[in-house]
């Protein structure tokens, strides 16, 4: 199912955090929102995930408008951010069952899906341990399982690898590839250029709340006449790298 974002605006009082941003994410496509801190990436993703209402603009998934059908749209999205935490006194398995019930998954399907994710994400060794005792990497793996649990059409990942070491980050990258292969659309934000270059089919460059450019990596490099994404980005924001 396609995500369509059109003319998205979000204001906080006098500050416009997101200013007329438009893009699409098609099924089986990985789109990266790339920009520095404060570019409006997290606010954009939170609006798409239904956590924040937009001030203006349209968000549609599979033709459904998030303002008109918020529950149906939310049911089609899996949201994960780098700082999302777990309930400390629940075990990963209990947590997955809890969210499965909130998403109204049928019990037999839920049980199967939980076991599948526990196996794939190598959660088994700590699946019965309370989340308060888990390491950051173990928590994030559990969180990936939570976001992917209900098999959403679109995955919205907000800097999912931040604060993770290389080994833990590997699970995220593998999971993204697996979900892409399964035909799911993936929208993720990052400020790590290498990650975007490595994973994304298309990239939206964001700066000061606006989408300053968008396209495939070759397209962006060609338009900017730069050799890498970092230089292309710096040129877009009017801060070219010194020779």
């Amino acid at each position: 199912m396609e995500l369509v974002v059109d003319g998205l605006v979000r204001r906080f009082g006098a500050v416009t955090a997101v200013d007329r941003v438009s893009f699409t994410v098609r099924p089986g496509e990985v789109v990266g929102l790339l920009g520095p801190n404060g570019a409006g990436k997290t606010t954009t993703l939170r609006m798409i995930a239904g956590i924040l209402p937009p001030s203006e603009g349209v968000i549609r998934i599979g033709g459904l408008d998030i303002r008109e059908r918020p529950l149906e749209v939310k049911a089609r999205i899996g949201f994960l951010s780098g700082d999302t935490q777990l309930y400390r006194r629940l075990t990963p398995r209990e947590l997955l069952f809890y969210f499965g019930r909130l998403y109204q998954m049928e019990e037999a399907r839920l049980a199967r899906r939980v076991e599948q994710l526990v196996r794939e994400l190598e959660i088994t060794p700590f699946a019965s341990q309370q989340a308060g005792t888990l390491s950051a990497g173990q928590k994030q793996r559990t969180n990936i399982a939570r976001a992917f649990l209900h098999e959403p059409d679109l995955l919205v990942l907000d800097e999912p690898t931040s604060a993770l070491d290389v080994v833990s980050g590997r699970f995220i990258v593998e999971a993204i590839r697996r979900e892409k292969a399964a035909g799911r659309g993936i929208l993720f934000s990052t400020h790590i250029m290498g990650e975007a270059e490595y994973l994304c089919d298309r990239i939206v460059l964001m700066h000061q709340g606006r989408a300053v450019d968008a396209g495939t990596l070759p397209e962006l490099l060609e338009r900017s006449r730069c050799k890498n994404l970092t230089d292309a980005f710096l040129q877009h924001i009017g801060n070219p790298r010194p020779e």
Binding site: A49, G50, I51, P70, L71, E72, K74, A75, I77, F79, S81, D83, T84, Q85, L86, Y87, R88, F99, L102, Y103, Q104, R146
Partner: peptide, 13 residues
């Protein structure tokens, strides 16, 4: 604790 977000993005009233 940062767990509120997970509830808010779930399809719940």
């Amino acid at each position: 604790r940062g767990t509120m977000e997970t509830l808010l993005c779930a399809p719940l009233r």
